[in-house]
Amino acid sequence: MANDVLVVAEHLAGKLTDTTFELLGKAVQLAGASGGQAVALLLGAPELAGELGAADLVITCDHPALAHFTAEAYEAAVAAVLAERQPRLVLLSTTTAGLDLAGSLSVAWDAPLVSYVVGLDADGDTVVATAQIYGGKMLAEVAVESVRTICAVTAGSFPAAAGRRDNPAAAVEAFAGPPSLDAVRSTFVELVEPDAGDVDITAADLLVSVGRGIGSRDNLELVEELAGALGAPLAASRPVTDLGWLPKTRQVGKSGLKVKPRAYLAFGISGAPEHLEGMSGAELIIACNTDARAPIFDVAHYGTTLDLFDLVPELSQQVGA
């Protein structure tokens, strides 16, 4: 209803995502301040409703088309719920599902959309969002004066703990899927799990990680030598794995793996938000990047603007390669 904040819950392979709880915590706070309800919308997987106890109301919607995520089916269900309930604010994450849904919902529900939100407040009738832009190099403060707003929130912006509660939600309501769910054109074929068998970078105490600054596949030898000397696996940012220079199992970040080693050495990585999402929790981060303004230095504990081609061989030598 008019002051409600609605969270679209996300789940993958039978588990609710951390981002769902981050959004829910924020929804509880915002709805509480404006006298509305925090509503969690759970599509498919009704058995997960019990974990959404922080919400005032959980709306479930189950239908064969919702067994797996497709933008089309999710959109049909969410749009139908929004049309009926007309909440004040809808929260999604900038996950794959969120990126896919947010834009088309903003058309279907005719609501302004703010993406990459890292800060969010309601100031009377105005929603004020702070959003990342230009790869995190700038922030934009945006004011939305509308009775309805959609925000896609960057993972890690709000604490997940605030959205977790052990007791079940005060109310759970089942929403009958709209007829459009029977006419969904996109079909889910299969879920592909990452290759097993390579080293597990999430289990390592120390990671040597390399980004596009390495320049070419041939140059990888340099960091391989250092990694070998340190007995640490090699990890990488997305461009390095996209180029096929290292296997996907080495990718750290939003679409890669989340790592929390005792130390993370980053060479030639700029520190885009999607990369930071996967490694900012490391105990000790040491970054080497020739650009003194690279965002990686905002999460690193120690940094150097030396050229990696000067530093890496020196390091290898000192650790005794």
Binding site: T96, A97, S186, T187, F188, V189, E190, L191, V192, E193
Partner: peptide
């Protein structure tokens, strides 16, 4: 092929 987090991806068919 649509990519999700942790290296998972889904194969979809769309007309």
């Amino acid at each position: 092929r649509q990519e999700f987090s942790a290296g998972r991806s889904a194969v979809l068919e769309v007309p």
